[in-house]
């Protein structure tokens, strides 16, 4: 690991000033991803600013029924919070499906949003990767791409976004609050993560000098009946092959509201708007669920190693909606 200077920021203002003035400055939250990437030589910051002393650790109810979550709330605390568990069970479940208990105790909400892909070629310094070394090419195409994306990929990058939490946030239309010396911005989650296009190294809308300060969850009454399903290669401690965040309202056998987002299949946390459109007003039946899944997956593009994800995503969407119907949000 490259030697770096370390600073512990006493307040938000100091943190923002340091990152505005310096070159190669990175914020350190839980460190569960950044430190890994530094060890691998993928991130090589000159200065690391520890932000864990900043007062961004609250979970507060907002007028109107929303909830504001501080960027430094640990994943384990978020998942255990009663407000989150009752209003947004999908979010609590998604967080608990990520990583391990030890990692969740360290990882922060802001850091989770900035998790970088687990693509094998991104992690290997000897491989070509446009995300790690812009313009070098993509060895994942034609290589081991079992974990790769089937939605939102480009000829420059097929890396899947790894987060579970962010999939639930996408489903919930969360808003990411960021701050810099220039002021405060509120970025809708749909705009926060970017598609790779021809600049896969630019992963989010966060500017180089900005700090994530909070995530706001709007009131989403249908989320009270929501769940998260993660399918992976072992029972725990693996990234999603496919995950589904879903919320459903059914009246008289007809879907009156539906929200759906996918993980493991997209180059960003994937809000399944086509599927939602197909579900709205449709009968709450296995057939309709399947048609909705197919509507979303019509755009899927896969290689030989991840072609199964199209079928797996279809089946997992149907199975998750079916369980929502029969079991509600019970984990």
């Amino acid at each position: 690991m490259r030697s770096f200077s370390y600073l512990s920021a006493p307040d938000v203002e100091t943190a923002l000033r340091v990152i505005a003035d310096g070159e190669g400055v990175k914020f350190l939250g839980g460190g569960t991803n950044l430190v890994d990437l530094m060890r691998e030589g993928i991130e090589r910051p000159a200065t690391v600013v520890d932000i864990t002393r900043l007062p961004l650790t609250g979970i507060e109810e907002l007028p109107g029924g929303g909830v504001r979550v501080g960027a430094l709330v640990r994943n384990s605390r978020l998942a255990a919070d009663l407000l989150i568990r009752t209003r947004y069970p999908v979010l609590a479940q998604a967080v608990l499906h990520g990583a391990s208990a030890q990692l969740r105790n360290m990882a922060t909400v802001g850091g989770n949003l900035l998790q970088r892909t687990r693509c094998l070629y991104f992690y290997d310094g000897a491989a070509a990767c446009n995300k790690r070394a812009p313009g070098s090419g993509c060895d994942a195409i034609g290589g081991f791409s079992r974990g790769g994306a089937i939605l939102g990929a480009s000829e420059h990058c097929v890396a899947a976004h790894p987060s579970d939490m962010a999939v639930a946030l996408a489903m919930l239309d969360a808003v990411v609050e960021v701050e810099s010396v220039r002021g405060v911005r509120r970025i809708p989650i749909a705009d926060f993560h970017r598609l790779p296009g021809d600049t896969p190294h630019i992963e989010t809308a966060l500017a180089a000098d900005e700090l994530i300060t909070a995530v706001e969850l709007p009131p989403v009454p249908v989320a009270a009946n929501s769940r998260y399903r993660k399918v992976r290669d072992r029972a725990s401690y693996a990234f999603a092959l496919v995950s589904v965040a879903a919320a459903l309202n059914v009246e008289d056998g007809v879907v009156t509201e539906a929200r759906l987002a996918l993980g493991g299949v997209g180059t960003k946390p994937w809000r399944a708007t086509e599927a939602e459109r197909a579900l709205l007003g449709a009968p709450a039946t296995e057939d309709a669920f399947r048609r909705a899944a197919e509507a979303e997956l019509a755009a899927a593009v896969a290689g030989p190693q991840n072609a199964f994800k199209i079928e797996l995503a279809r089946r997992t969407i149907v199975a998750t909606l079916r369980r929502l119907l029969t079991e509600g949000s019970a984990a």
Binding site: L120, D124, D139, G143, F144, S236
Partner: peptide, 21 residues
Amino acid sequence: DPRTGRIMNAGLAEYHVPVHA
């Protein structure tokens, strides 16, 4: 990797030994 002879999952994150679960 059959193109290069390089091991691409040289670590416990991506070489999946069983976990307790």
